[in-house]
Amino acid sequence: MSSHVASYATKLARNRLGLWLFLISDSFLFVGLFVTRVVLLGANRPDLNQILGLVVTAMLLLSSFFMNRAEVEMAHGNRPAFLRNTFITMVLGGLFLLGVVGVEWQLAPFGPGDGAQGAVFFAMTGFHAFHVLTGVMLLYIVWNNGRRGLFSAEQHWGVEAAAVYWHFVDVVWMFFYVGLYLMGSPV
């Protein structure tokens, strides 16, 4: 029994390291996109709906709050609260996607081929939205596994990994929000 616990702790430490190495490598993509924005647009920014930007940002922040609650509840063995909070996180992630891809992309006064601002805006939001989409899919898998009772207070690496990934996507948006909606003057 004690060797089982020890091997789980060792595996957990390796899993955590692996996940963080993946996130660091993934962050190079986003840093590259942000640098592209700074080089191509400089002191200008795309002319976007700022209220919509604030609303989608608030949704993502709120989703991180509920994901943190979900993880804490699972760590204390409260499965119903974990399922509820994970579900809310998925819904907020879906609303974020709807706000960016379903509304902002349609309202933008330029297309992906309309110069530097179009290319930068659609590349940044597109890559980020794809990460949000994969995050929602990962959350669904974790939520479904939680519903089937596959996690416990002692062993719930899947929940922790999904939460860390989800917060990473939130951290990326913190910088993209500033780069796309707030920095510089609208073109």
């Binding site: 920014r45 700022q50 604030l54 608030a58 909606y181 920095m183 510089g184």
Partner: peptide, 14 residues
């Protein structure tokens, strides 16, 4: 902080 960023971004974007 996000609301503060929004206000600063709208009134003093540089």
């Amino acid at each position: 902080l996000t609301f503060g960023e929004f206000i600063v971004g709208v009134i003093a974007s540089p």
